[in-house]
Amino acid sequence: MKSSFLRRLINAPYLLWSAIFIIVPLVIVAYYAFTDESGNYTLSYILNIGEYKEVFIRSLVYAVIATLITLVMSYPVAYYMSRSKVSTQKIMMLLVMLPMWMNLLIRTYSWTTILEKTGLINSFLGFFGVEPLKLIGTPGAVILGMVYNYIPYMILPIYTVMTKIDNSLLEAAEDLGSNGWAKLKRVILPLSLPGVISGITMVFVPSVSTFYISQKLGGAQTLMIGDIIQKRFDALSYNTGAALSLIMMVVILISLAIMNRFTDDDDGGIIL
């Protein structure tokens, strides 16, 4: 009896911590979203979200495009990695992870050196007499920034799942007449789906909520919802900010729920 009580006690610090610092803050976000500055219940902030419709749509569209590009770029790399020699795999893993240890801000910022009107690409083009292109300040630059920053989050889960695919399954597929493409379509793709899903999640969520990338690489009309939230909080408009955060959270959860319908996760509880 005593030991089982002790065992329960071991949970107490974390239980307390997660209640105070995970659950309560979310409740408070909801509280601010549904009250006005003097604490009275109001729906006006939530209902006013319509004003930000375009920003929401823009954020979602950018994030979806960035996620898709990331996926297309990562998949062959992850496959190639998973089928390489163990020593090559290690080196490649290291190379993929290394940029993640660099600060996101600086990684994003160094793109300006490349993309600016007098940046490296345009200097290079100018060498051949090509007029400078408008690269920075475009939606493309923002999406590029997202792809660049979050691509390791796509490669790693896909790679991890792929290394777990037993080689004999691939051989069985070949044995049963699949050439490279059929093998990919019928065996590798379905078996790597869990990795793809978690990769998509890990890229989509930060992309849709980013608030630095669009400020650095975007222009006057590429503002993202994360930027607005940051600005609202910086301007002390907690209620609007909270309402925006809440809606964004809901949008993300809905997106994730839709995606999770494609897989059954067997471990680690439900995602809300």
Binding site: L26, V205, S209, F233
Partner: peptide, 25 residues
């Protein structure tokens, strides 16, 4: 499963929301 769900929240939530919610707290 409830525990794991709560544990997953800071990972699944966008950083902005986590930051903002902590600040509001």
């Amino acid at each position: 499963s409830a525990f794991m769900t709560v544990t997953n929240i800071p990972m699944m939530n966008p950083d902005v929301v986590t930051g903002v919610s902590m600040m509001l707290l």
